[in-house]
Design a protein around this nucleic acid. Structure first.
Lengths: 142, 142
DNA sequence: TATTGTTATACTCTATAACTATA
DNA sequence: TATAGTTATAGAGTATAACAATA
């Protein structure tokens, strides 16, 4: 019997969707920014990984290729991402942010951050540090 | 300048979707269990709150009433929830789990928990405790 | 033939707006 | 008139399966 770890699992199952919802709602409520969480993450990835291929994004986001393709397609249509064939292997694509994309990404990040900061402001610096530590550990696990 | 708290926000924005995806994928991959995360949460809520009204669920999940209504409707169609009008105020509904619903809930919970346990197994008891503490704090904030 | 990505199809999740039934 | 819930509509997120283009 290992109740601590099971309790921990239950708590994660309870709390994670709550936080997701909060972030999503905030992104949507700011009408100047129409980005969803996956879109925000895709832009973030494209910014950090110059001329990334679709498979890279797909792997990073944990999506099946068609889902990633749709996601990118939406961003291309919105003018936030440029998608060009890779000249050395024309099966691959290369994604890069447009200048609008960069602006929108920055804006969306600020909104998401603001939402989180409002909540986290209630924490003491030590608690905040603890949250940070835990997030880093969880990132490694997932 | 408050970089610790901002870093913390960034980490949350990065890690929370990862965990969500992991749970979702696990629930979907087990073909014996067709529940989504919101469905699992709705069943959980209905189990804990006998004869709950739609507005209660809606509030708990942070959904608009139509979204909650659809969610419940799907569960009723799947035979997991019973939805009856409240006799004292016929505008309200009363939701309760069917016996199938109880079984499915238990099963889905086990699957989700198993997914998390596999990951959390890499943590020491102290780390696990720390994760637990942080989740409890975040639950209060969100 | 194997790989990269897209299209086709089908769900669920979620919102807003308009509606129905009851109080 | 106000409240509880549903229906209508729409768009995003996600999957699997089938396909096209390139290597």
């Amino acid at each position: 019997m290992c109740s601590r770890i099971e309790q921990c699992a239950d708590e994660i199952l309870d709390v994670i969707p709550l936080i997701m919802r909060s972030i999503r709602a905030k992104l949507r409520s700011q009408h100047s920014c129409g980005l969803s969480v996956p879109q925000l993450r895709a832009l973030s990835f494209a910014e950090r990984n110059r001329d990334a291929a679709l498979a890279d994004l797909s792997g990073h986001l944990g999506l099946m290729p068609p889902a990633a393709s749709n996601l990118v397609n939406g961003l291309v249509i919105s003018g936030l991402i440029k998608r060009t064939p890779n000249s050395s292997d024309r099966r691959r694509i290369r994604m890069s942010l447009t200048s609008t994309g960069r602006k929108e990404l920055k804006h969306a990040r600020q909104i998401a951050q603001k939402c989180l900061l409002e909540k986290l402001a209630a924490l003491t610096p030590a608690e905040c540090e603890q949250v940070s530590t835990v997030m880093q550990k969880l990132r490694v696990l997932f």
